[in-house]
Structure formats: structure tokens, C-alpha cells
Design a protein around this nucleic acid. Structure first.
Length: 900
DNA sequence: CAGTGAGCGAGCTTCCGCTTGACTT
């Protein structure tokens, strides 16, 4: 009979540890936190030492606690083996509170490596729960609740489209907003330089190389860094010379027939160190840059790999490798690449500040790493790519430095009476080192790979030929928008958020709250985000101060060390001391000083008469204003940094024309008008008097792309209003043509197909429609795959049963029910009998769990989100996602797996 | 696979960190 009970946080960990501990031990998971503040209400008695009313555990946790209680009945020892960090300590304590064990010995136990030795050592070195750590964790929880639940209501009252504020999400949004502000303020500068292709005039080494003009008459040529981002002018401190088109052209002329001579030739050795092994944030960044995965996708794939034992824990802030891992890596490097690739001493990596180090780095699990090719058959394509990335980075982190030389040539010539200098640089590797396994992608330009550039061997005084000489025009670029990857990096570097939350922060500020949306991979702030941010900046400055979390961490560290009290800290924050506390900031008197017309309007610029142009945000959408008088709906889809004053005036001009009457609708006798709304210009049957709320919505239709509200004719309007149009019948089913959220499409029953242009909606014939329907349906640009196997007819229903390969792996379908092929069963080997059984089980599960409630608010939100989505889709298509291929020079074992 | 103008109107909303479901095709 097992008489020792061990509690860890995750299921997968419980299973692994269970294997090591044997039959005397039962290992169970707490599944994270078991108790929290109530969802409704503050749950904190601020006037009574910030006493917390912990809510009853939720259903999930209730079951966990009940199960553990049951298991505890026969046990004589309870080991609380949650993670060794603040949150882990808190979980242990809350568990203990809920379990109330009687007659059971309780130990707190921690281990850092999941090996037999480490665990048995941990069992022999238990301690008691550290209440100081618990105090720090719960202090953190209380602080987050105070901020979130007291400041959010202020936003509801003053920036109605902003739903929430928080210690983490609000600075995250502010980062995106500030970047966009910098882009809006940015003034581009135009400048030129000369680029040349040269080669040695004498000797055997005739390879050509690229060179660039860097100096005229001793003065450097201006490059991007010499310009002021806010004015587009040369910085006052810059000594560089800005070359314009004409001057550059003249220079090319003056250099005609010039003699080029090497004036200096330098070679310097360099070494490059590998990057440290992955932790959560860096994994998300690299998977984003190299594989194009979102942070959320990366985490869910990693979760699968972890649960099935392929990698170590994926939510970690540590880049430290265990001894077991270092040994495994070194052995494998020697086997695959050779001994010369193994450094004399193992490399050790330190973690950044605020790291809690409850886990090790993310790496292939086990004491012998599985080579990607050997796990190919067990992993899906995405899992394979992520595993390979982790495997390579881990190996590389324990490999030798790369070594090489950089060479620089300076080449002089005479342009008229001015001496000019060109420069060429080269880079060669004498020893690849870690680069043999893993090449880094640069942050700014993920597609660029630092290639070798070999210069010919030249000495001072050597003559050089110039085969090509041309003007290169340049334009300075505004700071790039954040991507998911770069935002995670920024948040981590500022200590904001935790490994378990980076992906959910992104999700929160984008999908859930709509403060940012994606333009390709770039994150763009909504107008609401601007308003929310400026409201917080002017009235809750310390909450959106990027140092807020870092300062909090310092305090909590002191609390954990017994050098400070959480209550004192909370007291000061809430009641205030030298500066007003939160209580006062969210009070009614203070709310009265927050003027809606100030905080919900975003200043764009002044027109030529000095009249301010602003955007005002409302619950659903935004309006554009010039001064007090002129205003119109702000169309969605205009990126903030595209909204110049000129553009705004253009929009105002179109939007404020007011309805234009086109004619009388012959059917209804009502006037048909054209007007502009937040989705652009549209026509409408009948005029709505302002203020009257008619129940019957008038019929409306958007203008096609390219139609102008000023020139649209009555006939065109009638055609638009005639949609959706019945095209004809195919196989007795009616086919209609209409516009939807993904553009124009045909519809036959439930089968819909997109069509090329909006104009086709009016012209497409039933024959053309039939041709489209005769083609197999394209699923997002991909033709649906043929089934893996056909198993025959269902014995009861007669429906054909087939095995297909879907997004979530192989599954069985009879057309009505889909059942995933369980792991461990080869999809090619599924028999009809098993398939019928699996389908029946699946159907039974669906029936027993029918409640899938849709919340009201979700429906409402959809409309807003859709519009955003539409733009993103349109642009994304134009841009045509460039597939990023994993750069690797890894040996054959790793190859053949990254091209899918 | 759809909506639109302006902007008090009725009642509701909200946080962060630890986990994994149940669910897609």
C-alpha cells in the first residue's frame, strides 16, 4: 500500500516522478493554483489589513482537492513538491489550507532536476513552508487585483471602448502605442550614396566585390543614423555630408575614368559565441522569427512535446542546463560534429534579473537527446520543426565559438578636385563552431543571413577596377512596429509578465480586448489603445510606468527575504503617503477631474489654419473631427501612421458631404442616397431622420472598390442594392452571388466559393458558376487532401467511413462525427470495427456534454473584430507571407525534416 | 461569410499567474 503522497503542479511531471518513486508513493498534480480571489467583487478588505476572502475553489480545483483528500486517507506523509518559486510556495500553502490534513506528516520538498538522484536527495532534505514567500506571492496577487478591479471601472466611465486596465496589459499596450506615436511623428529623410562593383586590376585573384562611397574630401557621407527622426534633417551634431540626387549624379560623372587605388587593407580576427539555450521568451521569439509561429501556437506545440516527454518544461525563465543536459549535449556534439566542436569547459549561462529559476532551460529531455530524424514518425510537422529548433539551439549552446576574420579595404579615387574614399568589407570563417548547428536570425531583418563575403587579397597601393558605379538612393525608415516576438522580448527585458503569461498577454491585448490588431506580423494599436493609454498616462502615471513591475519585484524580493512587509507596501500604494494613493485616484472627486472629451480624443495635428484635427473614440468605432464643427465617422482600416493631416482632411471631405440623393427607387418609392460610414461609402434606400430609431433597417449596400460616392450613378446604385443576386440553379439548388466578410462569394446551400472580383457579382453567369463548383473546394489556398484510407460503409447507417489527415492529426469521419485516431494506433491500420467504435465513443461524448453556451457579449464584439480581421486578411494576401526556412547546416541526421 | 451616420440614455464589464482541458479538421 502506498503511504506517501507527493503533490506537484503538472500532470506530466507527476507521471515522470511517479516512475522514479515506486509503489510506496502516489504522485498527484495540483494543476496550478487551487484557490483564488472571487471573480466578482474586490475580495479584499482594504480597511482591515488587506484581509483576503479567498473564494471557494472552482469546480476544477474542487475535484483536485477532493481527489487528493481521498488519496490522503491511507497516507501517513504528505510531500508538497510544487515549484520552488513564489507561486509554487503559495500553491503549497493554499493546498494545505484546503486539505487540513490530520494525522499526516507534512513536508515541503523541492527539486531542480527530474532524475532519480535529485528526487531522492530532495526527499531527504525537506523543509517547512516558507510563509515569507507565500506573503510575497499573495501580495502580488492582491496588488494585481487592486489595480485591475479599481482602475478598469474608471476606464469604463471615461474611455467606453476600453474594457480593462492592468499592471501587465496596460504597459504592454503602451509600448505598442508609443512605437506608433514615434512612427506618426517620424519624418523621412532622403539621401544618396554610391555603390560600386570592383575587382583587383592585377594578380590572379580577380573576384569582384561590392564597395560603397564613405567619404568626400575627408568628410563622411551621411547615413541613416545622421538624421533626426523627428525632423528628417541632418542632426546638428553630425559632421556628415548629405548627398542629394543631383550631387550624387555629378559625382558619378566626375569619377568617369578615375584611378582607384587601395589606401588601406586591414584584417582582424573575431570570434562569435553561441546563444544560450531557450527559455520561454526566447523560444517564442525564435519560433516566431524562424518558423512564423505565434506565441500561443509555439506554447501549445511545446506543451504537447512536454507532455509526451520530448522536451523539458516549457514555461521557464532560466537558461540554465542541468549537468545531465550538459553531458548529453557534449556527447552528442562530439558524435555528430567531432571533438573539435566541444569546448574544453562546459558553458554555463546566467539568467537575467527577476528570474525565479524554478525550472531549467527548454531542451530535449532525458540523459541522451533524441536526434530529430529518430523522432520524425512520432511528431506532427509543427512539433517536428519546434523540436528541431530546440534541439539545435541546445547543442549549439554547448559548442565551440565560431572563428574568422573581417577584412576592410579602403579605396581612394579623385573626383574632380575632391578626393573620395570607398569602403568594402568582407567576413570569412576559419572555423564554424556552433554555426555548424545553428545560425541566428538577426532581430531587425529575420530574412537576412550573415553570409560570408570574401574579399580578394590586396595591399596598399594596389590598383582596382570599377566595373559598376551607380547612385543608391535611400530613405530613412521609421522605427519598426512590434511583432509578437519583439514585444515578448521587450516585455521580458523590462521584467513585465512571466513565462506562463507572455502568450496570454498577447492574446489579451489583441483578440480579447482589441487594443492591438495585426497587420501581417506587425502589431498596430487601435484608436481605443491610444485613448486608454493617454488616459492612464495623465491620471495613473505610475501604473503605465514601465518600471512599475520591476519595482514591485524588488519589494517582493525583500518580503520574501523577510526584510519588508507586504501589508505596508500595499497600504502605501492604496492609501498613499507622499503621493496620493490608488484610493484617491479612483475616487469620485478625482473621476470628475478626468474629462471625457480630453481623454477620449487623440490629437492628429493642426490644419493649415491651426484648427486641431482629432479622433474621438466611442463604444463602437471612432469619429474624426476638425475643430468643433466638422466631423464624420472614422473609417476603419486606416493605420494610425497613415493618418496624416492631409489624409484626415480628405476623409473629412468625403465623410461630411452628407447624403447625396441619386433617385427614386421604383419598387418602394423611397429616395436612394449615397453616404459614408465607418466601413466606407454605401447606398441606402430611404432617408432616416436623425434621432428616429426605426425598427425596420433600410436596405444598404457598400460601394465596390473603385466606385466613388461623388460619381456613382442611380443605375449603379440599383445594381448594388439588387444583391444578393440569384445566378441560377445547379443540381436543383439555387446559386446566389453576394458580398461577405471575406469579399465576394457564391453560395449554393451550405457550399460557398469566393470569386475574383466584386464586379463579377453582377455579371457572373450560371455556366461560369457551374465551372467554379465543378472544381474541388479550396481550403484557404490549399486543396483538401484525399483521405488516407477508406474503410467501407458504416454497418448501421451505411455512411462511408474514411480516415483523413487534418490539422490536428489523423481522424476518422463518417461525415457526421469526427473522431481523432488515438496515439499509438497507426492511422493506416485502423479497421472498420475500431473506427465504428471510436465514432460511437466520440458521439457519446458529444451528447453527454451538449452545453456550449454563447455569451451575449461575444456576439456583439464579433462585429468589431470582424472588420479588423478583414483588413488584415486583405493586406496579408497582398504581402504574400514569405516562408521562412530554418537555416541550418546541421549534419544529415537533422536534414530532411524542415522543408514541410 | 456584413456592418454603416453620432456619441449621456440600459446594464454589464475588470486583474495576473499557475495549470490543462474540450475543441477544432
Amino acid at each position: 500500500m502506498p503511504n506517501h503522497l507527493v503533490i506537484v503542479e503538472s500532470k506530466a511531471k507527476a507521471e515522470t516522478i511517479g516512475k522514479y518513486l515506486g509503489s510506496d508513493y502516489t504522485v498527484m498534480a495540483s494543476y496550478g493554483h487551487v484557490r483564488d480571489l472571487p471573480e466578482k467583487g474586490l475580495g479584499i478588505d482594504v480597511d482591515n489589513h488587506f484581509a483576503v476572502e479567498w473564494a471557494l475553489p472552482q469546480d476544477r480545483a474542487k475535484k483536485v482537492v477532493a481527489d487528493i483528500k481521498l488519496a490522503m486517507k491511507g497516507a501517513d506523509t504528505l510531500y508538497l513538491a510544487t515549484d520552488e518559486d513564489r507561486e509554487g510556495e503559495s500553491i503549497a500553502w493554499h493546498l494545505l489550507e484546503l486539505l487540513q490534513p490530520k494525522g499526516v506528516e507534512v513536508h515541503r520538498m523541492v527539486f531542480h532536476e527530474i532524475t532519480e538522484d535529485a528526487i531522492s536527495e530532495a526527499l531527504g532534505n525537506t523543509r517547512q513552508i516558507d510563509m515569507r514567500l507565500v506573503e510575497a506571492a499573495d501580495g502580488r496577487r492582491i496588488m494585481d487585483r487592486l489595480v485591475g478591479y479599481l482602475v478598469s471601472p474608471v476606464l469604463w466611465r471615461r474611455v467606453p471602448s476600453a474594457r480593462s486596465a492592468g499592471r501587465v496589459q496596460s504597459p504592454a499596450v503602451r509600448l505598442v502605442v508609443e512605437r506608433e506615436r514615434a512612427r506618426m511623428k517620424f519624418v523621412a529623410a532622403q539621401y544618396c550614396d554610391l555603390s560600386a562593383i570592383m575587382n583587383a586590376a592585377t594578380g590572379d585573384d580577380s573576384r569582384s566585390f561590392a564597395a560603397r562611397l564613405v567619404e568626400i574630401a575627408g568628410q563622411p557621407i551621411a547615413t541613416g543614423k545622421d538624421f533626426d527622426a523627428d525632423t528628417g534633417l541632418l542632426l546638428e551634431t553630425s559632421k556628415a555630408r548629405q548627398l542629394n540626387d543631383a550631387e550624387a549624379d555629378a559625382l558619378v560623372g566626375a569619377l568617369d575614368g578615375a584611378v582607384y587605388t587601395v589606401t588601406s587593407a586591414d584584417t582582424r580576427p573575431f570570434t562569435e559565441k553561441p546563444k544560450e539555450p531557450f527559455r520561454t521568451s526566447t523560444l517564442q521569439q525564435e519560433a516566431g522569427n524562424k518558423l512564423g509561429f505565434s506565441a500561443g501556437r509555439t506554447m501549445s506545440i511545446a506543451q504537447g512535446l512536454y507532455e509526451r516527454g520530448f522536451i523539458t518544461y516549457m514555461r521557464t525563465d532560466s537558461a540554465n542546463l542541468s549537468e545531465q543536459a550538459i553531458t548529453a549535449a557534449r556527447i552528442q556534439v562530439a558524435e555528430l560534429y567531432g571533438k573539435q566542436f566541444v569546448p574544453a569547459e562546459p558553458r554555463r549561462y546566467k539568467s537575467g534579473r527577476n528570474a525565479q529559476e524554478a525550472h531549467e532551460a527548454i531542451r530535449p529531455s532525458g540523459e541522451r537527446f533524441r536526434v530529430p530524424a529518430s523522432v520524425r514518425s512520432e511528431l506532427s510537422n509543427d512539433e517536428m520543426r519546434l523540436y528541431e529548433l530546440i534541439w539545435m539551439r541546445t547543442l549549439a549552446s554547448q559548442m565551440e565559438n565560431a572563428r574568422g576574420n573581417t577584412a576592410t579595404l579602403r579605396i581612394g579615387a579623385q573626383a574632380g578636385d575632391e578626393a573620395v574614399v570607398f569602403r568594402a568589407s568582407g567576413k570569412t570563417y576559419s572555423f564554424l563552431g556552433f554555426r555548424a548547428a545553428y545560425i541566428d536570425v538577426s532581430e531587425d531583418d529575420p530574412s537576412a543571413e550573415e553570409a560570408e563575403a570574401v574579399l580578394p587579397v590586396l595591399a596598399v597601393g594596389d590598383r582596382v577596377n570599377c566595373s559598376v558605379l551607380e547612385v543608391s538612393p535611400h530613405s530613412t525608415k521609421p522605427p519598426a512596429r512590434f511583432t509578437e516576438a519583439s514585444l515578448v522580448k521587450e516585455l521580458e527585458s523590462r521584467g513585465i509578465g512571466r513565462p506562463s503569461t507572455y502568450a496570454s498577454i498577447i492574446d489579451k491585448i489583441s483578440s480579447t480586448r482589441g487594443y492591438v490588431y495585426k497587420q501581417g506580423n506587425a502589431l498596430v494599436p487601435s484608436w481605443t489603445a491610444f485613448a486608454k493609454t493617454q488616459c492612464l498616462e495623465s491620471h495613473f502615471a505610475n501604473l503605465v510606468d514601465y518600471r512599475f513591475t520591476a519595482t514591485m519585484e524588488e519589494v517582493l524580493d525583500k518580503v520574501a527575504a523577510g526584510e519588508a512587509e507586504a501589508e505596508k507596501w500595499l497600504d502605501e500604494f492604496y492609501f498613499g503617503r507622499d503621493t496620493p494613493g490608488l484610493k484617491q485616484l479612483v475616487s469620485q472627486e478625482n473621476l470628475d477631474t478626468i474629462k471625457m472629451e480630453v481623454v477620449n480624443s487623440v490629437f492628429i495635428g493642426n490644419d493649415s489654419e491651426g484648427i486641431p484635427i482629432t479622433i474621438r473614440v466611442w463604444k463602437n468605432g471612432a469619429s474624426l473631427h476638425r475643430g468643433e464643427e466638422e466631423k464624420c465617422a472614422m473609417p476603419e482600416g486606416v493605420l494610425p501612421d497613415d493618418l496624416t493631416v492631409d489624409r484626415a482632411i480628405e476623409i473629412l471631405a468625403k465623410g461630411t458631404i452628407g447624403p447625396r440623393e441619386l433617385g427614386i427607387d421604383p419598387e418602394t418609392g423611397l429616395t436612394i442616397i449615397v453616404l459614408t460610414g465607418r466601413f466606407g461609402p454605401f447606398v441606402q434606400v430611404g432617408i432616416l431622420e436623425p434621432g428616429t430609431k426605426s425598427k425596420e433597417k433600410p436596405k444598404r449596400a457598400s460601394l465596390f472598390d473603385g466606385m466613388d460616392p461623388e460619381t456613382i450613378t442611380f443605375e449603379e446604385a440599383l445594381e448594388l442594392l439588387s444583391l444578393p443576386r440569384t445566378v441560377g440553379e445547379i443540381d436543383g439548388e439555387e446559386v446566389t452571388a453576394q458580398s461577405g466578410r471575406y469579399g465576394p462569394y457564391l453560395k449554393k446551400g451550405t457550399d460557398s466559393r469566393t470569386i475574383g472580383s466584386e464586379a463579377q457579382l453582377l455579371t457572373i453567369t450560371i455556366e461560369e458558376a457551374a465551372a467554379i463548383y465543378s472544381q474541388p473546394k479550396q481550403a484557404r489556398g490549399r486543396i483538401s487532401k484525399p483521405p488516407l484510407a477508406a474503410l467501407g460503409a458504416h454497418p448501421e447507417t451505411g455512411a462511408p467511413i474514411v480516415v483523413k489527415d487534418g490539422r490536428f492529426g489523423p481522424y476518422i469521419t463518417d461525415g457526421a462525427t469526427n473522431a481523432t485516431v488515438p496515439r499509438g494506433i497507426d492511422p493506416a491500420e485502423v479497421t472498420l470495427e475500431t473506427a465504428v467504435q471510436l465514432l460511437a465513443e466520440r458521439a457519446a461524448r458529444v451528447d453527454s456534454n451538449p452545453k456550449r453556451t454563447i455569451k451575449k457579449k461575444a456576439v456583439k464584439k464579433k462585429a468589431v473584430k470582424k472588420a479588423v480581421k478583414k483588413k488584415a486578411v486583405k493586406k496579408a494576401v497582398k504581402k504574400k507571407a514569405v516562408k521562412k526556412v530554418l537555416k541550418t547546416a546541421a549534419p544529415r541526421l537533422a536534414q530532411g525534416s524542415s522543408e514541410d
